[in-house]
Amino acid sequence: MLKQFSLVFFVLLACYNRVNSRELKHITREPEVNAPASEAWELYRKLGLLDLIDRKLTNIFQSTEVLKGDGGVGTVVKLTFVPGNSSYTEKITVMDDQKRVKVTKGLEGDCLAIGCSVQIIQFGIIEKYQNSSIIKSIVSYAVKKEFQAKDPKPNIQAVEAILQASKKYLE
């Protein structure tokens, strides 16, 4: 069900952004966590991750800032990387408590600054067993034609660090 939702969502979002869905590239990670899906979702929904980033990932992120919103759809967040000379700004576009899916669209920074036309990050919490779940992350992006030879990619290390910090926190 989540795979079907993801595919339909990305095709619709790509059409909205005038990006051919075949142009979208995806990087997926699915770490298993020894915690109930409800607890994992509580961390990922709204602004829970920002607090975790501020406390546990100071070696990667210098600061986090909510520019607009309260953590729901429409919220705009700016993440500044260490040593503070680059940042990434994103907007929450989907927050589905029923499906436990959160989607953000990049507004500026990261691969958008080096040749990508769109960057989308989706987190989904999948219940595996009563006290076990999977945190699925999908980073989708499209490269502008004039930058294809350089093959720019999103900073997946930041997403992986967030996943690892989440796993440690939840367990």
Rank of each mutant, 00 (worst) to 15 (best):
K153A: 06
G69E: 10
D54G: 04
S38H: 01
R55E: 14
V94E: 13
A37S: 11
I134W: 08
L43E: 00
T80A: 08
D97A: 01
Q148E: 15
E160W: 06
E42W: 00
E30H: 15
V118W: 04
Q157D: 15
A14D: 04
K168P: 05
K167N: 11
G74T: 09
V33C: 04
L67I: 14
V82I: 15
L170D: 00
G71M: 07
I60E: 06
D110K: 01
P36C: 08
P31Q: 13
R45N: 00
I121P: 01
K168L: 13
Q98R: 05
L24S: 06
A37W: 00
V8Q: 15
E171P: 02
D96G: 02
K145D: 15
E146P: 00
L107V: 14
V82P: 15
S166G: 07
V101I: 14
K168Q: 14
Q62E: 09
V103D: 02
D151A: 08
M1T: 07
I135Y: 02
Y88N: 02
K3M: 04
G124L: 01
W41P: 03
L170Y: 00
A14L: 01
A158L: 09
K68W: 09
E39W: 03
Q164R: 12
Q130F: 10
G74S: 09
M95R: 03
A149T: 11
A142F: 09
G48S: 05
K46G: 04
L12I: 09
G115C: 04
V76T: 09
V73D: 08
Q4H: 12
K68Y: 10
L47N: 15
Y44S: 02
H26F: 12
I125P: 01
